[in-house]
């Protein structure tokens, strides 16, 4: 046990807004400024009410012989301080609604440039990704064909599904790594086959629960190349903390190159997606020994 007091106290000198991780998505900046707006309003209200509270505590502290003011309140005041917050909060509500529509209504992004499927999974705690492969079309999904060998339930009778690229955790403590292009609308179809997970991209201000039995659409548009972390934000078992993944944002060329390369590596297995069940078993048993 070690404790560095000056390091531990650093928070005290910093503004709350500086704690945000860097924003790299298009709508992220709007969410951040909405946060900042509520933050400044809150700080103002905080100082106002605390000033009043502290001033009253000092001014009206007990003094011998003083008698408090016999007063039951005033309807005009009640009316005023009902109305003022109503306007303030209505303003926040309207602004929020706009940002909410923009960030969460994935169907408002009708022609995404890239579409991927993502599954959270509990046996081994990680994420599974599925790219449509060279033909650019996903194979149909059939819930009845879901198995540990075919977690996405790709319909074996659909030829589009044969070349779908499925990327799973490499095993051990290494996080799964996937690439996506920058400045493109990315649509993620999110689900899970076991318990709830939550797909959290801190830098993109994206968070969405993965719900078994439901395919939920999430979208974002990354603006900056780099290496970002994927986290799980919904308790999904004792390995919940261990669901780290890496998302690498590339230029379109780099992304294409990576996709090609992945396809070559995984291609032998494409005819029956993730048929090598021992790979999963290995991955899952390895991930129990986690580094701290």
């Amino acid at each position: 046990m070690s404790f560095d007091f000056s390091k531990a106290m650093e928070w005290a000198y910093k503004d709350m807004l500086t704690f945000f991780p860097e924003n790299v998505s298009t709508f992220g900046s709007e969410l951040d400024s909405l946060f900042a707006m509520i933050y400044y309003a809150s700080v103002a209200i905080f100082f106002l009410t605390y000033a009043i509270l502290i001033a009253f505590i000092i001014m009206y502290r007990h003094q011998e012989g003083r008698k408090a003011y016999y007063y039951h309140g005033n309807n005009l005041m009640e009316f005023t301080w009902t109305l003022l917050p109503t306007f303030l909060f209505a303003g926040i509500g309207l602004w929020s609604d706009d940002a909410w529509t923009k960030s969460k209504y994935a169907y408002k992004v009708p022609n995404p440039d890239v579409t991927i499927d993502v599954l959270g999974y509990q046996s081994g705690f990680g994420w599974q990704f599925r790219y449509p492969g060279p033909d650019g079309v996903f194979g149909k999904k059939d819930r009845n064909q879901i198995s540990s060998a075919n977690p996405f339930g790709i319909d074996s009778s659909d030829s589009h599904g044969k070349d779908d690229l499925v990327i799973i955790s490499p095993g051990g403590a290494r996080p799964v790594e996937v690439h996506l292009p920058i400045n493109k609308n990315v649509l993620v179809n999110l689900s899970s086959n076991d318990v709830l997970h939550s797909f959290f991209l801190p830098n993109f201000r994206v968070k969405q629960d993965a719900v078994p039995g439901q395919w939920i659409k999430v979208w974002f548009n990354g603006t900056k190349a780099g290496r970002y972390e994927i986290a799980c934000a919904e308790l999904c078992g004792s390995g919940h903390y261990n669901m780290r993944g890496l998302l690498i944002m590339d230029s379109q060329q780099d992304y294409d190159a990576w996709l090609d390369q992945q396809y070559k590596i995984v291609k032998p297995e494409l005819s029956a997606p993730v048929s090598d069940t021992t790979a999963i078993a290995a991955a899952t048993s390895d991930s129990t020994t986690t580094k701290n």
Partner: peptide
């Protein structure tokens, strides 16, 4: 004193788009 802070921090979460990031 604490309810003021707790109430104000609640407004952040009430705003659904802000809640996306701070949820959980």
């Amino acid at each position: 004193a604490t309810f003021i802070i707790g109430g104000l921090s609640g407004v952040f979460m009430a705003s659904a788009p802000v809640d996306i990031y701070i949820h959980d």
